[in-house]
Nucleic acid binder design. Structure first.
Lengths: 219, 219
DNA sequence: AACCGCATGTGAATCTATTCACAAATGCTA
DNA sequence: TAGCATTTGTGAATAGATTCACATGCGGTT
Protein backbone atom coordinates (compact mmCIF):
# COMPACT_ATOMS: atom_id res chain seq x y z
CA UNK A 1 0.00 0.00 0.00
CA UNK A 2 2.87 2.35 0.78
CA UNK A 3 4.58 2.70 -2.59
CA UNK A 4 2.20 3.06 -5.48
CA UNK A 5 4.42 2.27 -8.46
CA UNK A 6 6.08 -0.95 -7.36
CA UNK A 7 7.16 -2.33 -10.69
CA UNK A 8 10.14 -4.14 -9.23
CA UNK A 9 9.42 -7.83 -9.12
CA UNK A 10 10.18 -9.57 -5.89
CA UNK A 11 12.01 -12.85 -6.13
CA UNK A 12 10.59 -16.06 -4.80
CA UNK A 13 13.56 -16.47 -2.47
CA UNK A 14 12.90 -13.12 -0.91
CA UNK A 15 9.32 -14.05 -0.15
CA UNK A 16 10.34 -17.35 1.33
CA UNK A 17 12.81 -15.56 3.54
CA UNK A 18 10.11 -13.14 4.65
CA UNK A 19 8.33 -16.20 6.05
CA UNK A 20 11.46 -16.99 8.01
CA UNK A 21 11.82 -13.45 9.32
CA UNK A 22 8.21 -13.52 10.37
CA UNK A 23 8.77 -16.68 12.31
CA UNK A 24 11.84 -15.32 14.08
CA UNK A 25 10.12 -12.05 14.87
CA UNK A 26 7.26 -13.95 16.50
CA UNK A 27 9.77 -15.64 18.74
CA UNK A 28 11.67 -12.43 19.49
CA UNK A 29 8.38 -10.78 20.36
CA UNK A 30 7.65 -13.50 22.88
CA UNK A 31 11.16 -13.09 24.27
CA UNK A 32 10.35 -9.41 24.78
CA UNK A 33 12.91 -8.00 22.43
CA UNK A 34 12.18 -4.38 21.57
CA UNK A 35 14.50 -4.18 18.60
CA UNK A 36 16.62 -6.54 16.56
CA UNK A 37 19.55 -5.95 14.22
CA UNK A 38 19.90 -7.44 10.78
CA UNK A 39 22.88 -9.27 12.23
CA UNK A 40 20.85 -11.03 14.90
CA UNK A 41 17.99 -11.72 12.52
CA UNK A 42 20.44 -13.23 10.07
CA UNK A 43 22.10 -15.39 12.67
CA UNK A 44 18.80 -16.89 13.73
CA UNK A 45 18.02 -18.14 10.24
CA UNK A 46 21.57 -18.74 9.05
CA UNK A 47 21.58 -15.94 6.51
CA UNK A 48 23.75 -12.86 6.07
CA UNK A 49 22.91 -9.43 7.51
CA UNK A 50 23.18 -7.89 4.05
CA UNK A 51 20.62 -10.34 2.77
CA UNK A 52 18.19 -9.42 5.49
CA UNK A 53 18.57 -5.72 4.87
CA UNK A 54 18.28 -6.11 1.12
CA UNK A 55 15.16 -8.23 1.39
CA UNK A 56 13.44 -5.75 3.66
CA UNK A 57 14.55 -2.79 1.57
CA UNK A 58 12.41 -4.02 -1.30
CA UNK A 59 9.34 -3.15 0.73
CA UNK A 60 10.38 -0.03 2.59
CA UNK A 61 12.77 1.10 5.27
CA UNK A 62 11.63 -0.26 8.55
CA UNK A 63 14.76 0.11 10.65
CA UNK A 64 16.52 2.84 12.58
CA UNK A 65 20.22 3.39 11.92
CA UNK A 66 22.29 2.59 14.92
CA UNK A 67 19.45 0.69 16.56
CA UNK A 68 17.99 -1.99 14.32
CA UNK A 69 14.41 -2.95 13.58
CA UNK A 70 11.48 -2.60 15.99
CA UNK A 71 10.39 -6.19 16.52
CA UNK A 72 6.62 -5.87 16.84
CA UNK A 73 6.34 -3.22 14.21
CA UNK A 74 8.41 -5.15 11.68
CA UNK A 75 6.43 -8.29 12.38
CA UNK A 76 3.25 -6.37 11.67
CA UNK A 77 4.71 -4.99 8.45
CA UNK A 78 5.76 -8.40 7.19
CA UNK A 79 2.35 -9.81 8.04
CA UNK A 80 0.91 -7.02 5.96
CA UNK A 81 3.25 -7.73 3.05
CA UNK A 82 2.55 -11.45 3.12
CA UNK A 83 -1.16 -10.86 3.57
CA UNK A 84 -1.26 -12.87 6.76
CA UNK A 85 -3.46 -10.70 8.90
CA UNK A 86 -6.44 -10.59 6.64
CA UNK A 87 -7.38 -14.22 7.25
CA UNK A 88 -7.91 -16.73 4.44
CA UNK A 89 -10.73 -19.16 3.85
CA UNK A 90 -9.21 -22.50 2.95
CA UNK A 91 -10.74 -25.72 1.70
CA UNK A 92 -9.02 -29.06 1.94
CA UNK A 93 -9.66 -31.80 -0.59
CA UNK A 94 -8.85 -35.37 0.37
CA UNK A 95 -8.99 -36.79 3.87
CA UNK A 96 -6.34 -39.46 3.56
CA UNK A 97 -3.08 -39.67 5.42
CA UNK A 98 -1.90 -36.20 4.68
CA UNK A 99 -5.25 -34.51 4.54
CA UNK A 100 -6.11 -35.60 8.07
CA UNK A 101 -2.77 -34.36 9.32
CA UNK A 102 -3.34 -30.96 7.78
CA UNK A 103 -6.75 -30.54 9.41
CA UNK A 104 -5.09 -30.73 12.80
CA UNK A 105 -2.00 -28.73 11.87
CA UNK A 106 -2.02 -25.81 14.30
CA UNK A 107 0.53 -23.77 12.42
CA UNK A 108 -2.00 -23.02 9.67
CA UNK A 109 -4.60 -21.40 11.90
CA UNK A 110 -1.90 -19.46 13.67
CA UNK A 111 -0.98 -17.79 10.39
CA UNK A 112 -4.52 -16.96 9.47
CA UNK A 113 -5.30 -19.92 7.24
CA UNK A 114 -8.68 -21.20 8.34
CA UNK A 115 -9.84 -24.51 7.00
CA UNK A 116 -13.54 -23.99 6.40
CA UNK A 117 -14.43 -26.98 4.23
CA UNK A 118 -13.19 -30.52 3.77
CA UNK A 119 -14.03 -32.70 0.79
CA UNK A 120 -13.71 -36.36 -0.04
CA UNK A 121 -15.26 -38.78 -2.48
CA UNK A 122 -15.42 -41.71 -0.08
CA UNK A 123 -18.98 -42.28 1.13
CA UNK A 124 -17.66 -43.60 4.43
CA UNK A 125 -15.88 -40.35 5.12
CA UNK A 126 -18.51 -37.94 3.87
CA UNK A 127 -20.54 -36.62 6.78
CA UNK A 128 -17.94 -37.57 9.35
CA UNK A 129 -16.49 -34.99 11.67
CA UNK A 130 -12.85 -33.91 11.54
CA UNK A 131 -11.88 -31.43 14.25
CA UNK A 132 -15.29 -29.89 14.10
CA UNK A 133 -15.66 -29.84 10.35
CA UNK A 134 -18.08 -32.11 8.50
CA UNK A 135 -16.61 -33.76 5.43
CA UNK A 136 -18.50 -32.68 2.30
CA UNK A 137 -19.17 -34.62 -0.86
CA UNK A 138 -16.68 -33.79 -3.59
CA UNK A 139 -19.60 -33.69 -6.00
CA UNK A 140 -20.66 -30.38 -4.49
CA UNK A 141 -17.17 -28.94 -4.83
CA UNK A 142 -17.82 -26.09 -7.19
CA UNK A 143 -20.94 -24.73 -5.53
CA UNK A 144 -19.60 -25.20 -2.00
CA UNK A 145 -16.38 -23.38 -2.79
CA UNK A 146 -18.28 -20.45 -4.20
CA UNK A 147 -20.91 -20.29 -1.48
CA UNK A 148 -18.34 -20.32 1.28
CA UNK A 149 -16.11 -17.73 -0.30
CA UNK A 150 -13.09 -20.00 -0.33
CA UNK A 151 -9.88 -18.37 -1.55
CA UNK A 152 -7.29 -21.09 -1.23
CA UNK A 153 -7.61 -24.82 -1.86
CA UNK A 154 -5.26 -27.48 -0.53
CA UNK A 155 -5.17 -30.62 -2.65
CA UNK A 156 -4.27 -33.83 -0.83
CA UNK A 157 -5.64 -36.50 -3.14
CA UNK A 158 -3.92 -39.34 -4.99
CA UNK A 159 -1.74 -38.20 -7.89
CA UNK A 160 -3.90 -40.07 -10.37
CA UNK A 161 -6.95 -37.89 -9.80
CA UNK A 162 -5.30 -34.62 -8.81
CA UNK A 163 -5.56 -33.03 -12.25
CA UNK A 164 -9.30 -33.67 -12.51
CA UNK A 165 -9.86 -32.21 -9.07
CA UNK A 166 -7.77 -29.17 -9.84
CA UNK A 167 -9.65 -28.58 -13.07
CA UNK A 168 -12.85 -28.33 -11.05
CA UNK A 169 -11.19 -26.13 -8.46
CA UNK A 170 -10.10 -23.75 -11.20
CA UNK A 171 -13.61 -23.78 -12.66
CA UNK A 172 -14.89 -22.62 -9.29
CA UNK A 173 -12.76 -19.52 -9.69
CA UNK A 174 -10.10 -20.34 -7.09
CA UNK A 175 -6.81 -18.51 -7.71
CA UNK A 176 -4.57 -20.12 -5.08
CA UNK A 177 -3.82 -23.84 -4.88
CA UNK A 178 -1.44 -25.76 -2.67
CA UNK A 179 -0.79 -29.22 -4.08
CA UNK A 180 0.50 -32.18 -2.07
CA UNK A 181 0.06 -34.73 -4.83
CA UNK A 182 3.27 -35.84 -6.49
CA UNK A 183 2.40 -34.70 -9.96
CA UNK A 184 2.86 -31.59 -12.06
CA UNK A 185 -0.54 -29.97 -12.40
CA UNK A 186 -1.64 -27.70 -15.21
CA UNK A 187 -3.48 -24.54 -14.31
CA UNK A 188 -4.19 -21.30 -16.18
CA UNK A 189 -1.71 -18.45 -15.92
CA UNK A 190 -3.82 -16.46 -13.52
CA UNK A 191 -3.95 -19.25 -10.93
CA UNK A 192 -1.15 -19.55 -8.39
CA UNK A 193 -0.09 -23.11 -7.84
CA UNK A 194 2.47 -24.19 -5.25
CA UNK A 195 3.68 -27.71 -4.78
CA UNK A 196 4.62 -29.38 -1.55
CA UNK A 197 6.75 -32.31 -2.55
CA UNK A 198 7.71 -34.15 0.59
CA UNK A 199 9.82 -36.77 -1.15
CA UNK A 200 11.98 -34.12 -2.70
CA UNK A 201 13.75 -33.14 0.49
CA UNK A 202 14.36 -36.77 1.37
CA UNK A 203 15.81 -37.28 -2.06
CA UNK A 204 18.07 -34.33 -1.52
CA UNK A 205 19.29 -35.93 1.69
CA UNK A 206 19.80 -39.16 -0.17
CA UNK A 207 21.92 -37.36 -2.72
CA UNK A 208 23.91 -35.51 -0.09
CA UNK A 209 24.64 -38.64 1.89
CA UNK A 210 25.62 -40.51 -1.26
CA UNK A 211 27.97 -37.78 -2.42
CA UNK A 212 29.40 -36.43 0.80
CA UNK A 213 32.29 -34.82 -1.04
CA UNK A 214 30.76 -32.22 -3.27
CA UNK A 215 27.80 -31.04 -1.24
CA UNK A 216 27.39 -28.35 1.35
CA UNK A 217 24.21 -29.40 3.14
CA UNK A 218 21.47 -27.34 4.78
CA UNK A 219 18.20 -26.26 3.27
CA UNK B 1 31.40 -43.35 -9.48
CA UNK B 2 31.99 -42.65 -13.15
CA UNK B 3 34.13 -39.52 -12.99
CA UNK B 4 36.72 -39.60 -10.26
CA UNK B 5 37.66 -35.94 -9.94
CA UNK B 6 34.24 -34.31 -9.73
CA UNK B 7 35.22 -31.02 -8.17
CA UNK B 8 32.30 -29.17 -9.76
CA UNK B 9 29.70 -28.46 -7.15
CA UNK B 10 26.16 -29.23 -8.10
CA UNK B 11 23.56 -26.62 -7.23
CA UNK B 12 20.63 -27.36 -5.00
CA UNK B 13 18.22 -26.42 -7.78
CA UNK B 14 19.76 -28.99 -10.07
CA UNK B 15 19.28 -31.72 -7.50
CA UNK B 16 15.70 -30.73 -6.90
CA UNK B 17 15.07 -30.87 -10.61
CA UNK B 18 16.62 -34.32 -10.81
CA UNK B 19 13.83 -35.39 -8.48
CA UNK B 20 11.35 -34.02 -10.95
CA UNK B 21 12.99 -35.74 -13.90
CA UNK B 22 12.96 -38.98 -11.98
CA UNK B 23 9.27 -38.63 -11.36
CA UNK B 24 8.50 -37.92 -15.01
CA UNK B 25 10.69 -40.77 -16.20
CA UNK B 26 8.80 -43.16 -13.95
CA UNK B 27 5.60 -42.08 -15.62
CA UNK B 28 7.08 -42.25 -19.12
CA UNK B 29 8.35 -45.74 -18.36
CA UNK B 30 4.85 -46.82 -17.40
CA UNK B 31 3.55 -45.25 -20.61
CA UNK B 32 6.06 -47.41 -22.50
CA UNK B 33 8.12 -44.62 -23.93
CA UNK B 34 11.47 -45.87 -25.22
CA UNK B 35 13.13 -42.48 -25.47
CA UNK B 36 12.33 -38.92 -24.51
CA UNK B 37 13.72 -35.60 -25.71
CA UNK B 38 14.84 -32.79 -23.45
CA UNK B 39 11.98 -30.85 -24.99
CA UNK B 40 9.34 -33.33 -23.86
CA UNK B 41 10.95 -33.75 -20.47
CA UNK B 42 11.01 -29.99 -20.05
CA UNK B 43 7.40 -29.60 -21.06
CA UNK B 44 6.24 -32.11 -18.49
CA UNK B 45 7.77 -30.19 -15.63
CA UNK B 46 7.42 -26.69 -17.06
CA UNK B 47 11.13 -26.11 -17.52
CA UNK B 48 13.25 -25.32 -20.58
CA UNK B 49 14.96 -27.96 -22.74
CA UNK B 50 18.31 -26.23 -22.21
CA UNK B 51 17.87 -26.50 -18.49
CA UNK B 52 17.22 -30.21 -18.69
CA UNK B 53 20.25 -30.83 -20.86
CA UNK B 54 22.49 -28.68 -18.72
CA UNK B 55 21.36 -30.39 -15.52
CA UNK B 56 22.02 -33.83 -16.93
CA UNK B 57 25.32 -32.80 -18.43
CA UNK B 58 26.75 -32.23 -14.96
CA UNK B 59 26.63 -35.96 -14.43
CA UNK B 60 27.49 -37.37 -17.80
CA UNK B 61 26.07 -37.62 -21.28
CA UNK B 62 23.14 -39.94 -21.26
CA UNK B 63 21.42 -39.05 -24.49
CA UNK B 64 21.78 -39.82 -28.15
CA UNK B 65 21.90 -36.92 -30.59
CA UNK B 66 18.94 -36.89 -32.86
CA UNK B 67 17.04 -39.31 -30.64
CA UNK B 68 16.83 -38.14 -27.08
CA UNK B 69 17.34 -39.98 -23.81
CA UNK B 70 16.56 -43.67 -23.21
CA UNK B 71 13.81 -43.55 -20.61
CA UNK B 72 14.56 -46.59 -18.47
CA UNK B 73 18.30 -46.13 -18.64
CA UNK B 74 18.15 -42.46 -17.69
CA UNK B 75 15.79 -43.25 -14.84
CA UNK B 76 18.27 -45.79 -13.57
CA UNK B 77 21.12 -43.30 -13.86
CA UNK B 78 19.26 -40.62 -11.93
CA UNK B 79 18.33 -43.12 -9.26
CA UNK B 80 22.02 -43.89 -9.00
CA UNK B 81 22.96 -40.21 -8.77
CA UNK B 82 20.34 -39.50 -6.14
CA UNK B 83 21.20 -42.66 -4.26
CA UNK B 84 17.65 -43.94 -4.49
CA UNK B 85 18.24 -47.57 -5.31
CA UNK B 86 20.40 -48.43 -2.37
CA UNK B 87 17.54 -48.19 0.13
CA UNK B 88 17.67 -46.07 3.27
CA UNK B 89 16.85 -46.94 6.83
CA UNK B 90 14.74 -44.16 8.24
CA UNK B 91 13.51 -43.43 11.75
CA UNK B 92 10.57 -41.18 12.50
CA UNK B 93 10.38 -39.21 15.71
CA UNK B 94 7.00 -37.97 16.86
CA UNK B 95 3.68 -39.67 16.19
CA UNK B 96 1.43 -36.65 16.18
CA UNK B 97 -0.59 -35.31 13.30
CA UNK B 98 2.19 -35.19 10.82
CA UNK B 99 4.17 -38.13 12.08
CA UNK B 100 1.23 -40.48 11.65
CA UNK B 101 0.65 -39.22 8.15
CA UNK B 102 4.24 -39.87 7.22
CA UNK B 103 4.15 -43.47 8.43
CA UNK B 104 1.47 -44.21 5.89
CA UNK B 105 2.93 -42.10 3.10
CA UNK B 106 3.43 -44.55 0.25
CA UNK B 107 5.66 -42.27 -1.76
CA UNK B 108 8.51 -42.75 0.71
CA UNK B 109 8.74 -46.52 0.43
CA UNK B 110 8.45 -46.25 -3.33
CA UNK B 111 11.63 -44.21 -3.41
CA UNK B 112 13.55 -46.51 -1.15
CA UNK B 113 13.02 -44.75 2.16
CA UNK B 114 12.01 -47.43 4.63
CA UNK B 115 10.71 -46.34 7.99
CA UNK B 116 12.21 -48.85 10.37
CA UNK B 117 11.65 -47.19 13.74
CA UNK B 118 9.13 -44.80 15.25
CA UNK B 119 9.67 -42.90 18.49
CA UNK B 120 7.49 -40.93 20.84
CA UNK B 121 7.64 -39.78 24.43
CA UNK B 122 3.96 -40.33 25.17
CA UNK B 123 3.46 -43.45 27.29
CA UNK B 124 0.07 -44.00 25.69
CA UNK B 125 1.64 -44.20 22.26
CA UNK B 126 4.73 -46.20 23.13
CA UNK B 127 4.18 -49.87 22.31
CA UNK B 128 1.27 -49.17 20.00
CA UNK B 129 1.34 -50.38 16.43
CA UNK B 130 1.49 -48.03 13.45
CA UNK B 131 1.32 -49.77 10.09
CA UNK B 132 3.20 -52.70 11.49
CA UNK B 133 5.80 -50.74 13.43
CA UNK B 134 5.81 -50.64 17.22
CA UNK B 135 6.37 -47.17 18.66
CA UNK B 136 9.57 -47.05 20.71
CA UNK B 137 10.37 -45.01 23.77
CA UNK B 138 12.29 -41.85 22.91
CA UNK B 139 14.53 -42.58 25.89
CA UNK B 140 16.14 -45.39 23.91
CA UNK B 141 16.72 -43.15 20.92
CA UNK B 142 20.49 -43.19 20.73
CA UNK B 143 20.99 -46.91 21.19
CA UNK B 144 18.06 -47.87 18.97
CA UNK B 145 19.26 -45.68 16.14
CA UNK B 146 22.70 -47.23 16.29
CA UNK B 147 21.55 -50.82 16.65
CA UNK B 148 19.21 -50.55 13.70
CA UNK B 149 21.70 -48.89 11.43
CA UNK B 150 19.46 -45.91 10.82
CA UNK B 151 20.81 -43.40 8.29
CA UNK B 152 18.12 -40.75 8.07
CA UNK B 153 15.88 -39.35 10.80
CA UNK B 154 12.61 -37.52 10.23
CA UNK B 155 11.72 -35.11 13.02
CA UNK B 156 8.00 -34.44 13.49
CA UNK B 157 7.86 -33.17 17.05
CA UNK B 158 6.65 -29.83 18.49
CA UNK B 159 8.96 -26.91 17.70
CA UNK B 160 9.67 -26.38 21.37
CA UNK B 161 11.48 -29.68 21.82
CA UNK B 162 12.89 -30.18 18.34
CA UNK B 163 16.36 -28.86 19.15
CA UNK B 164 16.79 -31.23 22.11
CA UNK B 165 15.69 -34.18 20.02
CA UNK B 166 18.01 -33.23 17.20
CA UNK B 167 20.93 -32.88 19.57
CA UNK B 168 20.41 -36.50 20.58
CA UNK B 169 19.99 -37.59 17.00
CA UNK B 170 23.31 -35.98 16.13
CA UNK B 171 24.93 -37.65 19.12
CA UNK B 172 23.81 -40.97 17.72
CA UNK B 173 25.91 -40.25 14.65
CA UNK B 174 23.07 -39.58 12.19
CA UNK B 175 24.16 -37.45 9.23
CA UNK B 176 20.84 -36.81 7.50
CA UNK B 177 17.84 -35.13 9.12
CA UNK B 178 14.52 -34.05 7.69
CA UNK B 179 12.81 -31.56 9.96
CA UNK B 180 9.08 -30.80 9.95
CA UNK B 181 9.13 -28.61 13.05
CA UNK B 182 8.77 -24.91 12.35
CA UNK B 183 12.07 -23.86 13.86
CA UNK B 184 15.63 -23.36 12.67
CA UNK B 185 17.69 -26.17 14.11
CA UNK B 186 21.40 -26.07 14.77
CA UNK B 187 23.47 -29.03 13.68
CA UNK B 188 27.20 -29.54 13.09
CA UNK B 189 28.62 -28.87 9.63
CA UNK B 190 28.89 -32.51 8.73
CA UNK B 191 25.19 -33.19 9.28
CA UNK B 192 22.76 -32.56 6.44
CA UNK B 193 19.59 -30.89 7.61
CA UNK B 194 16.62 -30.20 5.38
CA UNK B 195 13.50 -28.40 6.45
CA UNK B 196 9.97 -29.07 5.33
CA UNK B 197 8.09 -25.93 6.15
CA UNK B 198 4.49 -26.46 5.17
CA UNK B 199 3.32 -22.99 6.13
CA UNK B 200 5.84 -21.41 3.85
CA UNK B 201 4.11 -22.36 0.64
CA UNK B 202 0.77 -21.21 1.97
CA UNK B 203 2.37 -17.93 2.91
CA UNK B 204 3.72 -17.62 -0.58
CA UNK B 205 0.20 -18.10 -1.91
CA UNK B 206 -1.03 -15.51 0.53
CA UNK B 207 1.56 -13.05 -0.75
CA UNK B 208 0.79 -13.82 -4.37
CA UNK B 209 -2.94 -13.39 -3.92
CA UNK B 210 -2.42 -10.16 -2.00
CA UNK B 211 -0.12 -8.69 -4.63
CA UNK B 212 -1.53 -10.04 -7.85
CA UNK B 213 0.29 -7.40 -9.88
CA UNK B 214 3.97 -8.10 -9.38
CA UNK B 215 4.05 -11.86 -9.08
CA UNK B 216 4.40 -14.62 -11.61
CA UNK B 217 3.06 -17.62 -9.71
CA UNK B 218 4.01 -21.30 -9.90
CA UNK B 219 6.37 -23.15 -7.64
C1' DA C 1 25.85 20.83 21.21
C1' DA C 2 29.41 18.27 19.44
C1' DC C 3 31.11 13.70 19.26
C1' DC C 4 31.14 8.68 19.03
C1' DG C 5 29.61 4.18 18.07
C1' DC C 6 26.54 1.55 15.74
C1' DA C 7 23.54 -0.33 12.21
C1' DT C 8 20.68 0.82 8.29
C1' DG C 9 19.90 1.35 3.28
C1' DT C 10 21.74 0.95 -1.20
C1' DG C 11 24.54 1.42 -5.46
C1' DA C 12 28.35 -1.29 -7.29
C1' DA C 13 30.85 -5.54 -7.62
C1' DT C 14 30.76 -10.26 -7.58
C1' DC C 15 29.11 -14.61 -7.89
C1' DT C 16 25.67 -18.07 -9.54
C1' DA C 17 22.17 -19.83 -12.48
C1' DT C 18 19.77 -19.85 -16.73
C1' DT C 19 19.37 -19.38 -21.50
C1' DC C 20 21.28 -19.01 -26.10
C1' DA C 21 23.09 -20.76 -30.13
C1' DC C 22 25.56 -23.83 -32.72
C1' DA C 23 28.88 -27.59 -33.87
C1' DA C 24 28.73 -32.48 -33.53
C1' DA C 25 26.60 -36.80 -33.78
C1' DT C 26 22.92 -40.07 -34.63
C1' DG C 27 19.03 -42.60 -37.09
C1' DC C 28 16.47 -42.99 -40.99
C1' DT C 29 15.48 -43.10 -45.86
C1' DA C 30 16.31 -43.72 -50.50
C1' DT D 1 26.57 -44.21 -48.73
C1' DA D 2 24.97 -39.63 -49.04
C1' DG D 3 21.75 -36.45 -47.40
C1' DC D 4 18.26 -34.88 -44.20
C1' DA D 5 15.94 -34.07 -40.01
C1' DT D 6 16.72 -34.28 -35.29
C1' DT D 7 18.42 -33.45 -30.82
C1' DT D 8 22.32 -33.61 -27.80
C1' DG D 9 26.17 -31.38 -25.23
C1' DT D 10 28.42 -27.24 -24.14
C1' DG D 11 31.09 -22.85 -24.30
C1' DA D 12 29.56 -18.06 -24.35
C1' DA D 13 26.20 -14.60 -23.27
C1' DT D 14 22.70 -13.05 -20.38
C1' DA D 15 20.02 -12.55 -16.48
C1' DG D 16 19.46 -12.76 -11.70
C1' DA D 17 20.71 -13.08 -6.83
C1' DT D 18 23.95 -12.26 -3.19
C1' DT D 19 27.49 -9.86 -1.02
C1' DC D 20 30.43 -5.86 -0.41
C1' DA D 21 31.44 -1.55 1.29
C1' DC D 22 30.42 2.80 2.66
C1' DA D 23 27.89 7.14 3.12
C1' DT D 24 24.09 8.33 5.95
C1' DG D 25 21.65 9.06 10.05
C1' DC D 26 20.15 7.96 14.76
C1' DG D 27 20.72 7.57 19.89
C1' DG D 28 23.32 8.12 23.71
C1' DT D 29 27.01 10.46 26.40
C1' DT D 30 29.79 13.95 28.14
Amino acid sequence: MISESKKKKISESTIRRLSLYYRVLSILEKENYETVSSKELAKREKLTPAQVRKDLSFFGSFGTRGLGYPVSELKKQIAEILGLNRGWNVALIGVGNIGSALVGYKEFQRQGFNIKLIFDNDQRKIGSNHKGIIVSDIRNLESDLKENNIQIVVVAVPATVAQYIVDDVVKAGIKGILNFASVNLKVPDDVFLRNENMSMELEYLSFALSNLKDVKGES
